[in-house]
Simulated scan of single mutants.
Amino acid sequence: MAGKIRKNGFTVIEILIVIAIILILMAVIYKPISRKIQAHNIDGDLKKLYGLLQEGRMVAFTQKKELTFGFTSSGACLYDGTTPIKCITLNYPFSLGTGSSIRITNRGTFSQTGSIIYSGTTDLPYTNCIVISNIRVKMGVWNGSQCNPK
């Protein structure tokens, strides 16, 4: 029994190898996961904009008011004249394809057509724009020249 060494647990080398493998795996999967998270967050902002436009249509129709939708430095707002009635905060940049604001008539329709476009630099496979027609609001995918509704 004097020549036998009893081994309980792991050696320092084995632990270092496991840590190295975990670090390599984390380095490989970090970028795709962070892009998915960013795409999800941009999609969330787009859904907030879509909801604000739909709410504006409903308020304009039920209260028989003309409203205006426009962007602020930190988000977007619905205005009754110059008074903001509801604002949302956006974490990513969006822009109107035409003009600086969109008017919603007292019948709940839009006075002009256009698009709201994600204006950041990340290419996304998800929805990244909103198509606004006189009577509809649809989320879509920007193809470089127009927003194609989904």
Results as ranks from 00 to 15, higher is better:
1 M>W: 08
2 A>T: 05
3 G>K: 13
4 K>H: 02
5 I>E: 08
6 R>M: 12
6 R>Y: 14
8 N>G: 02
9 G>A: 04
9 G>M: 00
10 F>D: 00
11 T>K: 02
13 I>M: 00
17 I>M: 15
18 V>F: 06
18 V>G: 04
19 I>D: 05
20 A>K: 03
20 A>C: 13
20 A>I: 04
20 A>W: 07
20 A>L: 12
21 I>K: 15
23 L>K: 03
23 L>V: 04
25 L>C: 14
25 L>I: 10
26 M>I: 01
27 A>I: 01
27 A>Q: 11
28 V>M: 15
29 I>A: 10
32 P>M: 06
33 I>Y: 14
35 R>M: 09
35 R>T: 05
37 I>Q: 06
37 I>E: 09
37 I>M: 10
37 I>L: 13
38 Q>W: 00
40 H>T: 04
41 N>R: 11
42 I>N: 06
44 G>H: 13
44 G>M: 08
45 D>F: 08
45 D>A: 07
46 L>T: 03
51 G>F: 04
51 G>A: 13
53 L>T: 09
54 Q>W: 02
54 Q>T: 03
55 E>Q: 13
55 E>V: 00
56 G>D: 09
57 R>H: 06
58 M>F: 04
59 V>C: 10
62 T>R: 15
62 T>S: 15
65 K>Y: 14
65 K>M: 14
67 L>A: 05
71 F>G: 05
71 F>R: 00
73 S>A: 09
73 S>V: 06
77 C>W: 11
77 C>F: 12
78 L>E: 02
80 D>I: 04
81 G>K: 15
81 G>I: 11
82 T>R: 09
82 T>N: 15
85 I>S: 09
88 I>D: 08
92 Y>G: 06
92 Y>Q: 03
94 F>L: 10
95 S>D: 11
100 S>E: 12
102 I>A: 09
105 T>L: 14
105 T>G: 10
106 N>L: 08
107 R>N: 13
108 G>F: 01
108 G>E: 07
111 S>R: 12
113 T>W: 12
113 T>F: 12
116 I>P: 06
116 I>F: 07
117 I>V: 15
118 Y>I: 00
119 S>V: 02
119 S>H: 08
120 G>K: 07
122 T>I: 06
123 D>T: 00
127 T>F: 14
129 C>W: 01
129 C>D: 12
129 C>F: 14
132 I>C: 13
133 S>M: 04
134 N>E: 12
134 N>P: 04
135 I>M: 12
135 I>R: 07
136 R>W: 03
140 G>P: 03
140 G>D: 08
140 G>E: 03
142 W>K: 11
142 W>S: 05
144 G>T: 01
146 Q>C: 00
147 C>A: 04
